[in-house]
Every structure is written in C-alpha cells, then in structure tokens.
Nucleic acid binder design. Structure first.
Lengths: 259, 259
DNA sequence: TGCTTTTCGTTCAAAAGCGATCAAATTCAA
DNA sequence: TTGAATTTGATCGCTTTTGAACGAAAAGCA
C-alpha cells in the first residue's frame, strides 16, 4: 500500500520554512521548494506571509532570516584556533560546578564553550557581561543575569563604569574567567581597560576565581592588567603549558589542572 | 485481528483526538478522519469543541495541539498580523530622531522594528533593556548601552531591581516605549511587574516619552501598570485607532500621530 | 549598452477545505 | 413503544489554498 505522504499543514510548513531560514541565515526559493516539495508560488506566498510577520526579509532569489542569531565573524577563527583545548578546559570547568550555585562568566571564547555546557542546568544562576553567553542561555537553562553597561563591539561584552553598579550588588560562588594573556610577572592582562576593570571587580568579590586559559595565553602581556595570580584559586589549562608555570604556580597558592 | 470499530463514544473519541494531536503536534483533518473512521464533519465538530476548551488550535486543513511538549516548536505565536503597521510606526518614530541623541528602547516587537532602522546611525546612543535590540545593533551603528539585570526569558529583556541601578545613571532624550496594552482609564499596562517597573523609571526620567503602539493594543489591560497617559508626550499608532482616543488624548496633552 | 536568463508578481482555474443545513440514525426518557 | 433530543453523515454553496501560465522586472553577461 502506498503511504500517501499527506502534505504538511500550511502553518507547519511555514514554521519549517522559518526554521530553515533561521538556521542557514539565507536560502534560495528553489532550494526551499525542493525540500518542501511544493511549487515556487507557494514558497513565495509563504515567504510573503513570514515577511509580514517580520520573521524574514525577502531578497531577489530567496530570503534572509531576520531572527538568525548574532554572527561572530571575529570569534569564528578565534574559537577554531584552539577549539579542542578550549572545549576540554570548559568541560573540566563544568565538572567543578555544584548544584544551585551562582557563577560568573566573563567574555571570551573559552567561557563561551562553558556557557554552551550550561544550557540544561536550570538550577544555576549565571552572571555574565558577555552578550554571546547571554544569547546561548537565553532560551532555556539557568537564570541569567546580564551585567549592564556599554556594549563593547569587538568582544561583545558589557563594560564601562555602569557595569560596576550591578557587579557590586551580586555575589557569585565561582567566577570563571578567560583572559587574553597571563604571565608570572605581570599577572592577568587584557586589551581593554574597561574590560579589565570589570574583571577586577569580579575577581575581588567572587568566592573562588577560576582561570580558564589555554597555553597559548601564557607569556602574553596585554595593555590592561586586571589581576595578580594571588587572587586566582585555580587555573585550568592544557598540557602544553610549560613546566615553569605548573611548578611555580602551586607554590603561590594557585592550583593547576591540565586537561 | 480486526479492530471492530465499535463506534466510540463521543467524549472518548475526542480524547483520542486530543491525544493524537498532542503526540504529533499537528494533524490534518483527512488523516484523523481515516484513523477514527468517522466523517469529516464529525472531526470538525470535535476539533471545534477542543478548540473551545483551548486544547487545540484549528488551522486550515487540520489542527495544532496547544498542549504539545514545551520543547516542540511552539507554533506561530498569535499571528502578529500587525507587522506592517509596526514597520510604519517604527519609520515614523525614526523620523523624530535627531543627530547625536540618546534614546531608549524597551522590549517588544515594535521597538525591535525601530532598532533595525538604527543600524546605520553611528551618531546615536541607544539605551535598551532588550536583548534582541542589542543583538540587532551589536555589529555596527549606534553606541549601545544595555541595561543589566535578570534576563526575562519570555520577552528577552532585562528586568528586576538590578536594572534600576543603571537606569538611574543615564538620561535619554527620547524614550520609545512599546506596551502590551493601553486604555484611557488604566493607562499603559504590561504583563510583568518587573518589566513595568523598568518602564516606569524610564518614563519618569526621559526627556520625551513616545509611545509606539498599534491599534490592537487599545482597550487592552494587563496586570502591571507602568504609566499614565500624562507622562506620554506622543503616541504613534495606526489609522485603525478609534476616534475616542484620537480625540480625547490631545485634550490631556498627548499628541497623536497615525501612520 | 543590449541581450539572455532568472526571478517576480499577477491572474486564473482547479482542488481542497470550510460552515451551514438538513435528514437519517442513535440515544434517552417517559 | 413513542417522541424528543442529540449525534452523525451527506450535500451544497462559499472561501482558501495551490499550481501553472505569462508578462514584467531584476540580475548576469558580453
């Protein structure tokens, strides 16, 4: 017997369409037609409806989604650079998190990996100044508190004097901090002074400060310093970190875990 | 074994229908008819009843379950038919913005349309509690200041006591506010008290308060009230707004523009 | 620029779905 | 059993949706 594929309901089909658009960002009419197995006229009509709802913007040859998530052109390459290491570091960090804790994530690609691991943890409270992290967690999972302030475009984080107002009013059990560079002599540094200022406040207040940094960050010194190693409780890094660090850091009270 | 179709009792059949809908999320009338072995008229009547009970939403060709799992793609939320109007309202609002101003946008779809128009305006400062608006403007355009606080999932806005800390420290020339409902008697209302609180603070402090609301919002009253009309300088709406409003609002000092 | 190809919007007709109506079947109570 | 009420199924206009056709507009190319 032939199982006649009853065609999808119109709203269902439009929802499907919308989702395909959102995933790919853009799509051509012809491709959509083939996937949904209807005529181009129908696709066009559907796109028209979706456009009226503001979900989609039509362009010659297809349509682009109006709801695709924030692009990350800058991050893209950065994340792929040491993605393996960062993923492992994030997983190790995740294993430290207990039930019902409040944690802080600052901006950066490493902490973003960690954010992605938190999507199912509805018992947590996540405080962050990272727009990306907030987006990752916007739909489900932990309670999210986003630090306000001026949006710094390059890093897509909130920085500036306004942030400290909120930071002063919250307390987190564990702060997971990424950094642009670290070294024994200069401590932890990043490029932007505002960013550094936010980090500094958090490092002072958090119950524990856990530094997430792959070995590429070692020996790097950037413009703005935000903490010394004595504020750091634990460094999670990869196996390529030189022995110089793995030996001397524990002596000044910083535990080190390599993954 | 032959399943003798002992004609199921009506309530039993409807329960069965409801369950099939819930499992599949959607179903078309013809398929349901075949499975239950009754006429389409009966199916339609059943669906009508289920719809009245809010279990199901009917669409052309079938029905969508309203009680499918939370994770299922929640269908096409109440047809935001007003997208056209919202676009026009946003364009009118845009025309009011002068050079180098600081403006506020609260959450909601209407203000999101406005945010999209601001992407090229690098002379402006945009203060907002809307994650969506921030995302729209994250890559280029105006200086963005995102109000911190707890992320309210449904609306994707920042709300709660922490927001007021930042709000107190900024001043905007024009606040463009969306609302869930407005009426002459109860003023402006929205569903969430926290959301209302943020709106209230802004309405107090802003140089001008400009309400963006299509006519569907008229006569709607929600739980949390955040402003009276006397705080509002201008209402931008569409032509369908009843004369009751367009006549009486100017008398109490609220200019009205219909687009 | 002018030409070709693709895509678009519109129109039209076929098909599918809908609500209303009515009659047959069923149920229930007297 | 009878008669009324309810439920069901069938039919008939009417609306919505769909796909094909065709000229207009846009994009690509020489």
């Amino acid at each position: 017997m032939i199982q006649e594929n009853s065609p999808a309901l119109a709203p269902q089909r439009r929802e499907h369409l919308r989702q395909m658009l959102r995933e790919g960002g853009v799509a051509r009419v012809e491709d959509l037609r083939r996937k949904l197995d209807v005529s181009v006229a129908t696709i066009r009509r559907d796109l028209e409806i979706l456009e009226e709802d503001g979900k989609v913007r039509r362009v010659h040859g297809g349509a682009v989604s109006m709801e695709s998530r924030l692009e990350e052109p800058v991050f893209e390459n950065k994340t792929s650079l040491a993605a393996k290491e960062k993923q492992r570091i994030a997983e190790e960090a995740y294993s430290l998190i207990e039930s019902d804790e409040a944690i802080y994530l600052n901006g950066g690609s490493t902490t973003l990996f960690l954010a992605r691991l938190l999507r199912e943890r509805s018992d947590l409270t996540v405080v962050t100044n990272s727009l990306q992290a907030a987006i990752e967690l916007a739909d489900s999972g932990p309670r999210v508190i986003l630090i306000g302030g001026e949006l710094r475009r390059i890093s897509q984080t909130m920085v500036g004097p306004l942030t400290s107002a909120v930071l002063a009013q919250v307390h987190v059990d564990k702060a997971f901090m990424g950094t642009m560079g670290f070294c024994l002599k200069n401590g932890l540094t990043t490029t932007d002074p505002n960013e550094a200022y936010s980090n500094e406040i958090v490092a002072e207040q958090a119950g524990q400060v856990i530094l997430l940094a792959d070995s590429n960050k070692a020996e790097k010194v950037c413009f703005a310093r935000f903490s010394d190693f004595d504020k750091i409780d634990l460094l999670i890094t990869d196996r390529n970190l030189s022995a110089e660090y793995t030996k001397s850091l524990p002596k000044i009270g910083v535990k080190v875990r390599t993954v």
